[in-house]
């Protein structure tokens, strides 16, 4: 299940990383605005929650960590 979760995280990461840079910037997040039902503020909140190191970009590891927590949260609901 862990491998499956991480595989899914990678697929979602690619959806955000439109240019295939290998990381996600705030600008990438803002581009998702038209595609996801989230406001710019919410996308910014997501970005900042996932950007643990606050270095301005999301690495696949940070993204997977956030997704892993989400999946963990989901189990309890």
């Amino acid at each position: 299940p862990l491998a499956e979760t991480m595989g899914k995280a990678k697929e979602l990461f690619v959806l955000c990383d439109k240019e295939g840079k290998g990381f996600i910037t705030k600008r990438d997040m803002q581009r998702l605005q038209g595609e996801l039902p989230l406001s710019p503020e919410q996308l910014e909140t997501v970005f900042e929650s996932l950007d643990r190191e606050s270095n301005g970009f999301l690495t696949p590891v940070e993204f997977k960590t956030g997704f892993g927590e989400f999946v963990g949260l989901d189990d309890t609901t």
């Binding site: 955000c16 996801l36 039902p37 989230l38 919410q42 929650s49 996932l50 997704f67 989901d74």
Partner: peptide, 29 residues
């Protein structure tokens, strides 16, 4: 604790984000 409240709100937004991404992925093959 305001920090805990903010954390809980963020979790909701994160869940919304990941759910939307997941449905986007499954919705568009």
């Amino acid at each position: 604790d305001p920090n805990m409240k903010a954390g809980a709100a963020n979790e909701g937004v994160l869940a919304n984000f990941f759910n939307s991404l997941l449905s986007k992925k499954t919705g568009s093959p």
